[in-house]
């Protein structure tokens, strides 16, 4: 992984014309006689390595510090200010913004929306994704086409996907209206009524993300040795029993990984809500993430929005910490 000192010495030796001066010594710091002479040389290699390191890794790390770490820390600071975006004056209010957030009458709605959205998109995504993966893992003709199509929406712009589904959900001339009429159901006012707007976004979210879950599950399924299934079948286990007693338990680690990653992305989703409802009607599709945007950039209360952002960050960090702890333990005991 790292360059050994012996190699560094050799590289230095080969940089100079061979035997140019006795002080430089023969290439290779391995000979004990060369030690005292090689010391300043080694220091020079070190200095040059630092220069090379700064040149190669410096820009990336500097950008991370300026645009990722600095804002993270500033966000904590902003969260303690009563400050409007673009204003030159700010008042230090300590934990005032947090107190306000926790006592705000709209907070229960935001929390409920976030939790419902999270549970449905994560739970639904795992179930649909697993089902899709089990289906596409069967030896079926043209399953490649289905796999490609199932994954395609995942790579498309959330704004575009939201827009195209808005057309399909249109209560007056949408495709879905016709389908619902065919089975004798009436179309809800998807855009403007309270539970339906959120349900609409969650359906589209699942359509866009189920293929990703399925793909990860497929990789997990293909990693299960066929021997194990054969053994279960020989012992007289029905396909269903094999699925529940052998396959699903072995998918445990994959499920855990997906649970974490899909929760993280669900909590951060923005584009679909923006394109389809803009947080409405009456704030019923405003998740915590969307609240940060609304408070910070529409209402302009940057301090309050930063407090909400910090709360979201802490939640995300706890989820990630759970994952890291689990992964560490897995590595430790395997």
């Amino acid at each position: 992984m790292s360059t050994s000192p012996a190699l560094a010495g050799a590289a230095l030796g080969s940089d100079q014309s061979p035997g140019s001066s006795p002080a430089a010594g023969p290439p290779g710091a391995t000979s004990p006689g060369a030690r005292p002479a090689a010391k300043p040389a080694r220091r020079r290699v070190k200095a040059r390595n630092v220069a090379v390191f700064l040149m190669l890794a410096g820009p990336n790390i500097a950008l991370l510090l300026v645009f990722t770490y600095r804002p993270m820390i500033l966000s904590f600071y902003y969260s303690m200010l009563q400050w409007n975006l673009g204003a030159s004056v700010a008042r230090f209010v300590g934990l005032g913004n947090y107190v306000e957030w926790f006592t705000d009458p709209r907070t229960p709605t935001v929390v409920t929306t976030t939790v419902v959205f999270g549970l449905v998109t994560v739970g639904g995504g795992l179930v649909l994704g697993l089902g899709l993966a089990l289906l596409l893992n069967q030896k079926l003709r043209a399953r490649g086409v289905a796999r490609t199509l199932a994954f395609a929406p995942y790579v498309l712009s959330g704004i575009a996907v939201g827009m195209l589904w808005l057309y399909i959900f249109n209560p007056r001339y949408g495709l879905l209206k016709v389908l619902l009429e065919n089975i004798g159901a009436t179309t809800p006012q998807w855009y403007s009524t309270t539970p339906w707007a959120l349900i609409m976004i969650m359906i589209v979210y699942l359509w866009k993300h189920a293929g990703y879950v399925a793909l990860i599950y497929l990789a997990g399924l293909q990693a299960i040795p066929q021997d194990l299934r054969d053994a279960a079948a020989l012992d007289g286990a029905s396909p269903r029993r094999t699925l529940f007693a052998v396959v699903l338990p072995l998918l445990g680690p994959v499920t855990f990984f997906l649970l974490i990653t899909t929760t993280l992305s669900s909590l951060q989703s923005f584009d679909l809500i923006r394109a389809m409802t803009d947080g409405g009607p009456l704030g019923s599709t405003t998740t915590l993430m969307y609240q940060i945007y609304v408070e910070g950039f529409q209402t302009g209360r940057a301090g309050y929005a930063s407090a909400a952002a910090t709360i979201l960050f802490v939640i995300l960090l706890i989820i990630t910490a759970i994952q890291l702890k689990y992964v560490e333990r897995k590595v430790h005991y395997s």
Partner: peptide, 19 residues
């Protein structure tokens, strides 16, 4: 430093980066 940056969601950086 690089690894930990993976854990910082871009969404919480928007207000300071915007200013």
């Amino acid at each position: 430093v690089v690894l930990f940056a993976l854990l910082i969601p871009g969404q919480i950086t928007i207000i300071p980066n915007y200013t």
